[in-house]
Amino acid sequence: MNSFRVVAVAAVLSAASVSAFADAAESLRAFVKDVKSGQSTFTQTVTSPDGAKKKVSSGSFSFARPNRFRFDYAKPYAQTIVSDGQKVWFHDPDLNQVTVRKMGDALGSTPVALLTGSSIEKTFDLKAQPDQGGLEWVMATPKDSGGTIQWLKAGFRGKGLVAVEIADSFGQRSLLTFDKLATDVALAPEAFRFAVPPGADVSEQ
């Protein structure tokens, strides 16, 4: 699954600023603890290590705790990623190929684990960051340093999650922004089930 982006740290912080930073960490904890489901459209921008190349994609996203989610990429190419909480299906319609992976192998310390998991601080160390772009930010660093994700940042406006930013071990940055993420919405169980299309080439890992 594609990865998510960057922040500059101020040299001197006022007491009011420190309080605001703490609020971002608390907002993330509250999001994981209290928000049971959500859906939104999204835009994802992936930036190359040298910052010269950017790849933009968009689509829709929904989730229901624990660990059920669906990404439907629409542009520039269609792709679907679905989890029922046990397995994750990756479907490329153009090639009619489906890859199936076990939940733990597919997620680990990923942005989806951050958004849909049930116990964030077992997997990540949290550290509040300076405000940027009108958002309050918190950094989540995976406790397992053996993965490909270096860190993730979640950006909040008030209690609302607006963006997730990621840096991977290859130097790539990715920014996922949500368009008015609706929370605690009623989602049909069928939304997180995947039916393999007729004739698809299926690979289970």
Rank of each mutant, 00 (worst) to 15 (best):
R65Y: 00
N67V: 04
R68K: 15
R68H: 04
F69K: 00
R70T: 02
R70W: 04
R70S: 01
F71C: 02
D72F: 10
K75W: 00
P76L: 04
P76G: 05
Y77P: 04
A78W: 03
A78P: 05
A78V: 04
Q79S: 13
T80V: 15
I81G: 03
V82T: 14
V82M: 03
S83N: 02
S83K: 00
D84P: 04
D84N: 10
Q86W: 02
K87L: 05
F90M: 09
H91E: 07
P93S: 12
D94E: 08
L95H: 12
N96K: 11
N96Q: 12
N96P: 00
Q97F: 01
V98D: 04
T99A: 00
V100Q: 14
V100E: 08
R101A: 07
G104A: 14
D105A: 09
D105S: 10
L107H: 08
G108L: 09
G108I: 10
T110K: 07
P111C: 01
A113K: 11
L114E: 10
L115E: 06
L115P: 05
T116V: 15
G117R: 08
S118K: 11
S119R: 10
S119A: 15
K122V: 07
F124Y: 15
D125G: 06
L126N: 11
L126W: 14
K127S: 06
K127L: 04
A128D: 15
A128V: 12
Q129W: 13
Q129R: 14
P130N: 06
P130L: 02
Q132N: 12
G133K: 05
G134V: 11
G134N: 13
E136I: 02
E136N: 10
M139F: 02
P142K: 01
P142Q: 09
D144T: 08
D144A: 05
D144S: 07
S145T: 15
S145M: 03
G146M: 06
T148K: 12
I149W: 04
I149Y: 02
Q150R: 13
Q150K: 13
W151E: 12
L152G: 05
F156Q: 07
F156D: 04
G160F: 12
G160P: 00
L161K: 11
A163N: 09
A163H: 00
A163M: 11
V164L: 10
V164P: 12
E165C: 00
E165K: 08
I166H: 05
A167Y: 06
D168S: 04
S169F: 03
Q172P: 10
S174N: 09
S174L: 11
S174G: 15
L175E: 09
